[in-house]
C-alpha cells in the first residue's frame, strides 16, 4: 500500500457538519481494505477528536496518514490549549458549553475513548497556542 496523506480542516462550532471528516476518513480506510475492526476504532477516535475541535478549539485540522504498518490520525488546533491534561483525561470531566451538552456532547468521555481505541495515544498542549493529539492504529 502506498502512503496516503489527507488534511481535513475542522471549523470551531460547526455542529451541522460534525462527523464529515471522520466519515470521509472511514470511507478512505474501507477502500484501502483496512481491517474492519481497525476502521471502527479509527472512526470512533477520529469522531471524538473532530468533535473536540468543534466544541473546544478555535479551529484546526485533522491529518490522516496511512502506510503499510499503521493509520495515524493527528489533530492540531489553534488554541486555546488545555491547562491540565491529567484532569482533561479523567472520565467524566468536561468543560463543554451548555449548548454542546444539550446535544449530548460533553460527557467527559472523548479523550478516554480516543485513548482506549488507539494503539498509541499522545497529547501535548500549550495554553494560548494549541493542542496536538496523535493516535496510531496498527494494521
Amino acid at each position: 500500500m502506498s502512503g496516503i496523506r489527507e488534511v481535513f480542516p475542522v471549523e470551531a462550532g460547526g455542529f451541522t457538519t460534525a462527523g464529515e471528516a471522520s466519515a470521509t476518513i472511514k470511507q478512505i480506510l474501507k477502500k484501502l481494505g483496512v481491517d474492519a475492526g481497525v476502521v471502527r476504532r479509527v472512526a470512533v477516535a477520529s469522531y471524538e477528536v473532530e468533535l473536540n475541535l468543534i466544541i473546544h478549539s478555535l479551529g484546526g485540522e485533522l491529518l490522516l496518514h496511512v502506510d503499510d504498518h499503521r493509520v495515524r490520525i493527528t489533530s492540531q488546533d489553534r488554541g486555546p490549549g488545555i491547562p491540565d491534561i491529567d484532569l482533561a483525561m479523567r472520565e467524566g470531566y468536561s468543560t463543554a458549553s451548555e449548548d454542546a451538552r444539550s446535544l449530548g456532547f460533553g460527557a467527559g468521555m472523548g479523550l478516554p475513548n480516543m485513548k482506549r481505541n488507539a494503539d498509541q495515544f499522545a497529547i501535548t498542549s500549550d495554553p494560548g497556542v494549541g493542542t496536538c493529539i496523535q493516535m496510531d492504529f496498527n494494521i
Partner: peptide, 12 residues
C-alpha cells in the same frame, strides 16, 4: 443520550 457513552459501548 450522551454520544460519547454510545461510542464507548458501540457494537456493529
Amino acid at each position: 443520550d450522551l454520544l460519547s457513552w454510545v461510542m464507548g459501548r458501540e457494537q456493529p
